[in-house]
Design a protein around this nucleic acid. Structure first.
Lengths: 318, 318
DNA sequence: CACCAGACGACACATATGTGACGTCAATGG
DNA sequence: CCATTGACGTCACATATGTGTCGTCTGGTG
């Protein structure tokens, strides 16, 4: 597999754009396009597939009434949210993250002010959001990654996420150049106090919007699967009552931070700084995240919730 | 045929949104969606077709390098434009207006400030633009129609255009409640001086952006075809040296207004008022419009040009 | 020079999609 | 009450699409 969003060279990009134009805008058949451009139909097919894959073409559904309108109003009413966006859950019980992420990308595109500063956390949902941002050029946006990095690159790496997001917005990107979890409390404190990291964390209260995702501690949790946290840590976090984390802050069902050694190792913005962001958008879907979503809302970390139908139903019912 | 963009009722809209979501976002097959929703595949197919037709789903190609990048830079350089957007011409020599309009809609979506005031002229291109606007809600936009109406409703009617545009932006719409061409000069003057019309025309200098289209005087000109102007008038305009009009102002190849009786009958904003709009976007494509496009640029009525490849080539070369 | 990996073209074929023909049924109007 | 009409379901079928296989070419690489 090539790089997920290889910009390739200009000629290729132009041809891709042309093919997409003929196909999606003009409604030409792949065969016709292939003949016109003197390439094989298969090639056209491939290019179109790639283009959809990596967000080169974006499909937006412009409707004042979304498909799950009742659930949205129910969530707003129940939790006192500013807004809720609920997208249909995947039919075949598939992965909700690309879908929730797509909606999140669209939301951010529409709500991040020009020259705005965007904070992001990381994960598959955020990754999908990045691919669904409307591209901006030269608007002086800033992207701030709200967590440290992972040494071992998994499929979804925080730095990758942030870079992709920044590229889509033509934004300057600010990274926390530290591991997500420091090895010791002393090291964590030293890192947080040290220059490049302190200055990035200091940007948090100046953000215009933060796009947060929720990481759950269920058995199907991705970080567990990818080995971001060990099984032992996972178990002890659960024992401590945690249902997941938002940006490295582990919360119990009530939305209070749990008492656990890990909490003093995390390099991330303070909760109070996060709460100072004028618009906190939480993008997280699927049943396994219901508990942490509810906790996040209770913790005052969610003004706008973007989720899927399954999770929304559970949330709305109680 | 039903209304082109019948909003239908909420339930229908929600189902349409859901179907589009499953199909375009999740990539489900029409068959699968039909089964899931207990409707026939044909119905799904129809709904998807409708949705694409009337701009319910919008497909945008997010590329920094468009398919005709060289032509764009050439046009900017040659004519001193702020920006040029060139889209591929229709393959089978079809109608360029929906394509140019689609690009125009996207441009306006991205450049009209929140709570901005948008002026529009009319025609098939503008119509297509309206269907390709990103929907806005409650942003207090305003839409001002920059020409009078037509008594006889053709396929593309100015009032229709404006209403569609306003609906997409959830904007208040201001119409010039007068015919496009008054019967006599006296009547024109009386109309322009009279209340509802004067106040709308007075809004022109306060616009943030105007989306203009160009009407040519070639034999294939749509207004001629639809009988908006008589053949005799058409001939006399050509004899007077006119190559087309922008918002009712007939220009010769050099961009000067022509001397012709019709010019004193048109109910429309003054050229100087138009020129005061900070961003004039001209959306017009196909070869037959090259002359009037060039005239409009020379007349200072075009900061941003959105056109198609054929026209762009002619413009750049000649 | 021999070799090999990978890109690409030429098929081939199973599905998916768009559309037409035709029958049914319910609402509408005389 | 009955005829008309139009919306919608079923079936059918021509295209369009996505994907797999195989052979060729090309550009490294030892």
């Amino acid at each position: 597999m090539t790089l997920p969003d290889a910009a390739e060279n200009a000629a290729d990009a132009a041809q891709m754009a042309r093919i997409c134009w003929y196909y999606f805008k003009e409604g030409q058949t792949q065969e016709a396009i292939a003949q016109r451009l003197k390439i094989t139909r298969k090639r056209v097919n491939q290019i179109l597939g790639d283009a959809r894959q990596n967000g080169f073409v974006q499909i937006t559904i412009a409707s004042s009434i979304g498909p799950c309108h009742e659930l949205e109003t129910a969530l707003v009413a129940t939790f006192g949210l500013r807004q809720a966006i609920v997208v249909p859950s995947p039919l075949a019980g598939g992965d909700a993250r690309p879908l929730v992420g797509a909606a999140a990308g669209q939301y951010v595109s529409e709500h991040l002010p020009p020259a705005g500063a965007l904070g992001i956390s990381w994960g598959g949902t955020i990754n999908a959001a990045a691919q669904n941002l409307a591209r901006r050029r030269g608007m002086n946006n800033r992207v701030v990654l709200l967590c440290g990095g992972l040494a071992e690159s998994t499929l979804v790496n925080p730095y990758d996420n942030a870079a992709m997001m920044a590229r889509a917005l033509d934004a300057t990107c600010y990274y926390i150049t530290a591991p997500m979890f420091a090895e010791s409390r002393t090291l964590r404190d030293a890192l947080v106090a040290s220059e490049p990291i302190r200055s990035v964390l200091a940007m948090v209260p100046t953000l215009d919007l933060a796009l947060l995702s929720a990481i759950d501690l269920s058995k199907q949790s991705k970080p567990l699967e990818y080995g971001v946290i060990s099984r032992a840590t996972w178990q002890s976090l659960r024992d401590a009552g945690a249902v997941g984390d938002i940006c490295g802050h582990y919360l119990d069902a009530e939305g209070h931070t749990v008492d656990h050694p890990l909490t003093s190792l995390v390099v991330s913005p303070k909760l109070d700084d996060l709460r100072r962001v004028p618009e906190l958008v939480l993008a997280a879907g699927s049943r396994q995240k219901v508990a942490i979503i509810r906790a996040a809302i209770r913790a005052g970390l969610c003004h706008v919730l973007i989720t899927d139908e399954d999770a929304a139903k559970d949330l709305a019912q109680g």
